[in-house]
Amino acid sequence: MAPDFIIIGAMKCGTTSLHRYLDRHPQIGMSRSKETDFFLAKQNFARGLDWYRAQFGNDAEIYGETSPNYTKATEFPGVAERIFRTLPDAKLIYIVRDPVNRFLSQYFHHTITGEAVIKPNQLLHSDAGRNYLECSRYHRQLSRYLEFYPLEGIFVACFDELRSAPESLLRRLFLFLGVDSDVVIEGLGQIHNQRSELQELPPWYFHARRSPVLRSITRRLSPALQSTLRRQLRHWPQRRLPMVDEGIRAELKSLLQEDTMKFRELTGMPFNGWSL
């Protein structure tokens, strides 16, 4: 079973919550693992289509997956073309938020997990910072897909609406996907706050999680046991996040202004709550 639609990003824009909401619709089946990362050449693409199809069930009318890495074109080139060659009729969903806030959220996330140890005053001059910027350049990221897919086949959603008016957003999204738009989804408004959860875990947890041997072991644990393990670790003091001053925020706005303007023009969406 291959998916009918893909949530292609963006990272730190509510993709986990959206994935869970869609999975509660009786006509929709989401991938068993939220992020298959199948279309990343250096990740799972070599596993082949049989592996990909096995990530989905067989008891729904349509299927979808969520992999925010699909809109990190600088880090992972060729994804849009790979998806099109495999799923030319797929519908795409791209959820976004204020580009500056998205950038900082990714920075904080990687600081917590130890994937990036960068002082704020060095952030914009680092390789990681440049990659964060690219993820917040929504027009540039979406343009890669428009080389293959028509704009009307891509649903652009805003994180602010997912948080403030999820019923309205989901109704339009269900219509886009061709499923019953009157279905009521339970638990709306419970935005998944991964940052708070991660801050409660000790630093060595993330180093262990990146170990291939330990990762292989933990993947064999049931989801319930993995959840219990994380809860047991949360007596550790939360780690403090780095302070980002207004000067850095102003520079981010300047660097992202042009792309954001093009994105508004492309989508026809005002994104009124954004800072730029």
Rank of each mutant, 00 (worst) to 15 (best):
M1N: 11
A10L: 05
K12Y: 07
T16H: 02
H25V: 02
E35S: 09
A41M: 05
R47H: 13
L49I: 13
Y52P: 01
Y52H: 01
R53H: 09
Q55G: 04
N69V: 04
A80L: 03
E81V: 11
T86F: 08
Y94S: 01
V96C: 04
V96L: 02
H109L: 03
N121S: 15
R130A: 06
N131F: 10
N131C: 04
L133C: 04
Y138P: 03
R140K: 12
R144K: 12
R144H: 14
Y145M: 02
E147Q: 14
F159A: 08
E161R: 07
E167L: 06
L170S: 02
R171E: 14
D180F: 05
D182N: 15
Q190K: 15
E197W: 13
A208K: 01
R209K: 15
R210L: 05
S216K: 12
S222A: 14
S222T: 14
S222Q: 10
P223M: 05
A224S: 14
L225I: 14
Q226H: 11
L229Y: 10
R239A: 12
G247H: 12
G247P: 02
I248W: 05
I248P: 05
I248N: 01
A250M: 03
S254M: 15
D259P: 01
E265C: 07
P270F: 11
L276C: 13
